[in-house]
Nucleic acid binder design. Structure first.
Lengths: 210, 210
DNA sequence: TAGATAGCTACTGTATGCAATACTGCGTCC
DNA sequence: GGACGCAGTATTGCATACAGTAGCTATCTA
C-alpha cells in the first residue's frame, strides 16, 4: 500500500484548487467530476473533503455535499489578528536558546526577498519560508498544528485580493526589525512587530480588493 | 437522507469512547469491529476517524489504521497553557458590551457548582458550562473552533488523571474572581486569573497522576 | 403569465467488494 | 534457547454499488 494515503495528496491538491480559484468561492464541489478529474475514486476524495471541512476551507451542507465558502471581508478581518496572536504566542514559547540561532537565518531569507522584490522572484513563497522558519523552534506541536490549519484560510483571501507585492517592501523591513529584536532578546518587541506585520497585511487586503 | 450525517454522530460517540477509556490510550482502532459494534458501515466510521485524527484525538498510522495516542505528560503540560491562552484571547476579543451580561450568568453556574460540590452533582459538566458561557459572546468563530478542537485533547488527560473534584473548590473561587473582574471591566485581571485557573488545573494533574 | 406540481435526473450518503499490506503463529536454523 | 523465515489470516485503503433526496424542467392551473 502507499505509505502516504491518497487522502493526504488529495487534500493538498484540493487546497491548491481552492486557493487559486479553480474551485471558486461559493460553488459546490461535485464529487464525481472532481474524482474523475483527479483520477481517484470518491472514497479518498471524500476523506480529503472532510478534512478540509474540519479546517474550515470547505463547509459541509448536509444533503448537498461540500461547498467552497463565499468570501467574507469580516472573516478576513478576524483571521489576520488570530494568526498574528497565534504566531506571537509560538514565538513567546520558543526558548531563548533556540531563538538564538534564528535571526541570521531569518535575515538570510529577508535578503532573498529583497532580491526577489527587484528580480521578480516569488515573494509569497519566501514570506512563507520566513514565517515557517520563525516558528520552526516552537516546542508546542499543537499550537503549530492550529497555525498550519488556519493559514490556508487566510491565504485564500491573500490569493484572491492581494496586489501581489504591494507591501512587500514594508514587510521585509518589519521582518528585519523582528530579527533584530530577537538578537537583543527583546521578545516583547519582536512579537509586537510580528502582530503589526500581520495587521498591516490586513490593511492592504482591505485597500486592494478588486 | 438524514439531515445530520452519520459521521457527526459517530465522531461524538468515538470521542466519548476515547475520553472515558473504552478506547484505551496506545491501542489501535479496529474498524470492522467498531463499525459492527456501532451498527454502521466502515465508510462513515472512517470519515469520523479521519476527523478525529485531524483534531489530534487519534493518530493515523499509514497502513495500520488509526490508534489512540499514548498519554504523554509533556503533551498535557503543553495543552493546558495553550487552552489558557486561547480562552484568554477569546475573552479579550469579546466586546465590553457583550461581556456586561455575563458575570451574573457565570456566577449562577458557580453557585450550582458550589451546591454540586457538597451535593455530589456533576462538577465537570458544570465547569464546561461555565467556560462555554464565558466564550459564548466571542465574535471570532475561527478562534472558537480552535478551542473546541483542542478541548477534547485536554479532557482526555483530565478524565484519565484527575482526582475528580480535587481542586473544584479553588476553581469556583477563581471563577468568581473572574466574574468580578469582568464586572469591573478589568479584562486584564480576568484573563490573568483565567490563565492561572488553567495552569493550576495542570498542577493538580501532575500531582494526581496514577 | 406567474405559480404550483409532478416527474426525472443528478448527486450525495452509506454499504459492500476487492486487492495489497501488515500481523500472527509456527516451524526451522543457528 | 533465540532469531529468522514463511504461510495463513486479519485488516487497512481504495473502488464500486446501491438507495434516497435535492434540484431542475416541463407541464398544468388559475
Amino acid at each position: 500500500m502507499a505509505r502516504t494515503p491518497l487522502r493526504s495528496d488529495l487534500l493538498e491538491q484540493i487546497t491548491g484548487r481552492v486557493l487559486d480559484g479553480r474551485l471558486p468561492a461559493g460553488t459546490r464541489v461535485n464529487e464525481v467530476h472532481l474524482a474523475k478529474e483527479l483520477g481517484v475514486s470518491r472514497t479518498p476524495l471524500r476523506e480529503a473533503l472532510i478534512g478540509l471541512a474540519d479546517r474550515g476551507l470547505l463547509v459541509s451542507a448536509p444533503g448537498r455535499g461540500f461547498l467552497v465558502p463565499p468570501f467574507d471581508p469580516g472573516e478576513a478581518r478576524r483571521l489576520y489578528p488570530l494568526l498574528a496572536e497565534l504566531e506571537a504566542l509560538a514565538l513567546r514559547w520558543t526558548s531563548p536558546v533556540e531563538l538564538a540561532g534564528l535571526p541570521d537565518a531569518l535575515d538570510a531569507v529577508s535578503d532573498e526577498m529583497a532580491r526577489a522584490l527587484t528580480g521578480g522572484g516569488d515573494l509569497s513563497t519566501l514570506d512563507e519560508r520566513w514565517h515557517a522558519l520563525l516558528l520552526s523552534r516552537c516546542p508546542n506541536p499543537h499550537l503549530l498544528r492550529l497555525i498550519e490549519q488556519t493559514k490556508p484560510l487566510l491565504k485564500r483571501y491573500e490569493s484572491a485580493y492581494f496586489a501581489r507585492d504591494g507591501h512587500a517592501g514594508e514587510s521585509i523591513g518589519e521582518h528585519r526589525r523582528i530579527a533584530a529584536a530577537l538578537r537583543d532578546g527583546d521578545l516583547a518587541t519582536a512579537s509586537a512587530v510580528l502582530v503589526a506585520n500581520w495587521v498591516k497585511a490586513l490593511a492592504y487586503l482591505g485597500e486592494d480588493r478588486r
